[in-house]
Structures are given as C-alpha cells and as structure tokens.
Amino acid sequence: MDYDRFKKEMEREGSGDSVSVGAGLTGELILYSFLVTGLFLLSRIFGKVLLATVGILAIGIGLHMMPMVFRFKRENSNHIVLQLFWISIFLGAISMIIFIAGSR
C-alpha cells in the first residue's frame, strides 16, 4: 500500500499531518495482522482445508480492499441505521452459532 495514497485519503478526512498518517497506518497494520493471526488460530483449532482456503481468500480480499481503515471507520460510525444493521447481524450470527453447536 502506498504512503502517498494513504496520506491523500487522510487529507480528505481533514487530518493529513505526519502524526495522524502514522497512526492511521498503524491502525491499518493492526487490522491486517488481526486478520492473519485470527486465521492462524482458527485454522489451528479447526484444522480444515476449507478454512485455510477461505482464509487465503480473505487475506486476498483484504489486500485488494486496502486501505481498509477508512471503510472500517465508516462502518463504526454512530449512524443509527448502521448500528442497528450490525446489531441485527450480531443477533443472527450468535443465534446461528449457538443453535448449530446445540444441535450437534
């Protein structure tokens, strides 16, 4: 990922000095390493080929979507529609997980 592109993107958000750009880049790297370590953990616990394939796909998509931080920030906004969207996704996801685990 390009420093200049990143800096341009940050300037559009209104904070383009070096301190903020450095912080933003760190955020980007943390998100990416979270993706990678999370996949390591999952593939070690479940140990499935499918999961590894999906993991590589996810990393590829992550690379393609870079920089992720700005999208991430948009999703974390406090617009009520986005908040309710993620809450409903959360409710659906954990009910799926727990009932699949229960039915086994």
Partner: peptide, 21 residues
Amino acid sequence: VLIALSVFAMVFGTVMALLQD
C-alpha cells in the same frame, strides 16, 4: 463466541482510537 467478541473489542477499540482527534 465470548473470546471472539472480546478480541473484536480489543482490535476495534484500538484501531478506532488511532484515528481520533
């Protein structure tokens, strides 16, 4: 599920804090 939630909280909190003014 709980570990996933807490890891999400850790990472989301830090990444968002890095972007604040």
